[in-house]
Design a protein around this nucleic acid. Sequence first.
DNA 1: CGAGCACTTGAAAGATTTCAAGTCCAGTGG
DNA 2: CCACTGGACTTGAAATCTTTCAAGTGCTCG
Lengths: 236, 236
Amino acid sequence: MQATGQCLSEATRRSVARPAIHPAPPDALVLLEQFGTTLSVKRDRQIYSQGDEAGCCYKIVSGCVRIVNFTKDGCRQIDQFLMAGDLLGFDALETHDFGSEAVTNVVLRCFPRRAVDKLAESNIALTRRLRDMTAISLRKAHARLIQLDRTSASERVARFLLDMTERLQASRRTVLDLPMSRSDIADHLGLTVETVCRVLAQLCREGAIAIDPADRSRITIRDDMALQQVTSEARH
Amino acid sequence: MQATGQCLSEATRRSVARPAIHPAPPDALVLLEQFGTTLSVKRDRQIYSQGDEAGCCYKIVSGCVRIVNFTKDGCRQIDQFLMAGDLLGFDALETHDFGSEAVTNVVLRCFPRRAVDKLAESNIALTRRLRDMTAISLRKAHARLIQLDRTSASERVARFLLDMTERLQASRRTVLDLPMSRSDIADHLGLTVETVCRVLAQLCREGAIAIDPADRSRITIRDDMALQQVTSEARH
DNA sequence: CGAGCACTTGAAAGATTTCAAGTCCAGTGG
DNA sequence: CCACTGGACTTGAAATCTTTCAAGTGCTCG
């Protein structure tokens, strides 16, 4: 019953950091590649929806994906955004708790869960790898929990921008082309669109960032340090 | 790098629900029992702290445990409370992300991780079980994320009380003896102690609950339905 | 008996949301 | 080609909620 993804980059880093007496062992995940098929999804289309049987795992080849949850009162929440290289659905149980949608046009590599599970049964390294990946996701979920709880709107937005700078590998690490809308950001950070706008405007005024007036999704990080500082301001 | 627990009850339910063509398979976790040693921890003492190497997994025999995290600005957050029967530390990576403390006097069954990992290497059922348990923890972390984000103080407190009613198996499911203090609850729900008090007082006035004036940690659920309703009120 | 601590309650301050209105841009149809 | 409509975004002002600050109660432990 789970449908969240994790950063391959982080997962990979971990496997590389593993004490290597022998030459670095090949990542158990490459074994999956033989089962992969390619899939394209257009912008704003669903990849799977909340409650669907978890038939596949995915790796994002290009584009941006959002993991969404609709509460019974019709409120949308975005659990996370996934970018090229990130993995999706590997920590699912039988069905997907959350849905998943394409933020931009997306290309996916798709792996049938049956094949993954079958392979894992005979390959202890892969099984272990899958477990560790889930543990890493869990850790990230907790990090997010801590981030959201007890942090002000500015802290959330500043941290979001810094995260995106890292993950989007912006041209010179300063110009961000955010693939998601303001309301996506709002639903991700647990704020309203208006608050997100106001905070961005405020950061502009303070000179920490600049918003391209012609394309508002293009944001320049002017003062990395100022953002970091906003991130760690005590609240209330 | 993880240090959170999960409910055995939920995990068990799942393994029971597993399609059983053969007579229900014994829970792979009972295999661990042979390695178990018993450990007592006094009230308010640490079981392990943030950053400790994750040397052991635990099962709580009796008492209540809190999983705590201290942010760099000195704020305490309680990720979750664990009760008798719950498991602790099984989804850890190398070290514990969060610390763990005894809320009441606690008795634990302690399993060395080396033994667990060793056993898992030769027992695919156990490995799979550990992975599923981690996935279940992840699911719960997400549930909590959703609960905290975008919910009002009354919703949080009401949901907390309902959860506790279930988990503490109160005498006639109506009288709760909360093992944790108001400030524990506050740090768990991301509120201040004052807000928790005020919401409890409010629920009292509305007749949903009653607080024993002689022992304020004893709370009677007077109107289950009213609490459920508070839980699902839209906010803001 | 006094100190300390957990808990409670009140009032003011602060933050974010809600409501309302306006701007800008892209795509559409005349 | 241009006006027009809708949607995303922005901004202002009032309303709402929670926190912060302050003070008081009651109980437990020396």
